[in-house]
Design a protein around this nucleic acid. Structure first.
Lengths: 156, 156
DNA sequence: CTCCGTGAGTTGGAAAATCAAACCCACGTC
DNA sequence: GACGTGGGTTTGATTTTCCAACTCACGGAG
């Protein structure tokens, strides 16, 4: 039997093991904005240089970023998102949306996103099957691993 | 002028300051699943008890969770999401979706979510204005703070 | 009443991660 | 030939994390 102290197997936890360390998602933010050089990242994120170097190695190893030489003589590099890295943008959008709504005065946002439809982006998570916005009460969790139950939906 | 080493003002960073520490989002996962008791959290997350206690205090202070006595004599508590906490579920869904797609064999997921429409949930981030799924290339960032530029869209 | 188990934490000390500042090195420039 | 720049690495002090053990209040069994 599995050691009783193993945590629940979970893709959320696994994803956080890749991008959940301090600064990692901020690196992804900057890289997605096109600011992929080491000194830009240091300035825009405010991370210590050594930690940033460690995070960049980890994100490249995990296939979220690629390191590319943008100049030989002198050899200089920048970091760019891979396709997998770009697929993490929904995480960033969800974090931004929550912060905009709960941590900020809506009239004074530090950044806005414009969608190609011409409007400011308000990201909404919808169900691919029916297209409706997803609400907590509409969800039922089905654990697939024996022994890991859920207590059922929480109502506020 | 602002000290030159201040990081970019950003709602993503601000949100991560609330829920970005190790285990915080896993706490939210369990609490949203209805497993809000201390020992359940310890077991299901695999976090040290002292760290968990610290995280719970922080999340309650930040208004993401509430602590509720589910029994007097003996006094026992559980943690439940606030309305603001439930609004972080899109973050969890986005993390789960990425992990399911990139870290797992699709035929063997540890948990599935069923939507009330009857289908398994595949969460998609859409633009509230036009309803279309949001793709990286459709976005333009508009920083609102002087001095914080972006280099423009990144193409892969 | 005494002993045992449970839930919800707190405490103590060792191990690991973070931090800030300084350093390095190859190269272009004045 | 001193100076600046980009992209890091090194060093040593400070913080966090980790884990096991401990506490405290209670409820129940014998």
């Amino acid at each position: 039997m599995a050691a009783p102290k193993d945590p629940r197997p979970c893709s959320i936890a696994d994803t956080l093991a890749v991008v959940g360390e301090k600064y990692s998602l901020l690196v992804l933010r900057e890289v997605c904005l096109g600011n992929g050089r080491f000194d830009q990242l240091v300035r825009n994120i405010g991370a210590p240089r050594d930690i940033l170097a460690t995070r960049l190695r980890r994100l490249v190893d995990a296939g979220v970023l690629t390191k590319r030489a943008y100049s030989e003589h002198p050899r200089r590099f920048d970091y760019r998102p891979t396709a997998a890295g770009l697929e993490l943008e929904p995480v960033l959008m969800a974090l931004k949306e929550w912060g905009d709504r709960h941590l900020r005065d809506n009239t004074d946002l530090p950044m806005t996103m414009e969608h190609s439809c011409g409007h400011d982006l308000v990201p909404v998570v919808t169900c691919r099957a029916c297209g409706a916005p997803v609400h907590h009460d509409d969800l039922t969790a089905h654990p697939q691993t024996p022994g890991w139950t859920v207590k059922g939906p929480v109502s506020t």
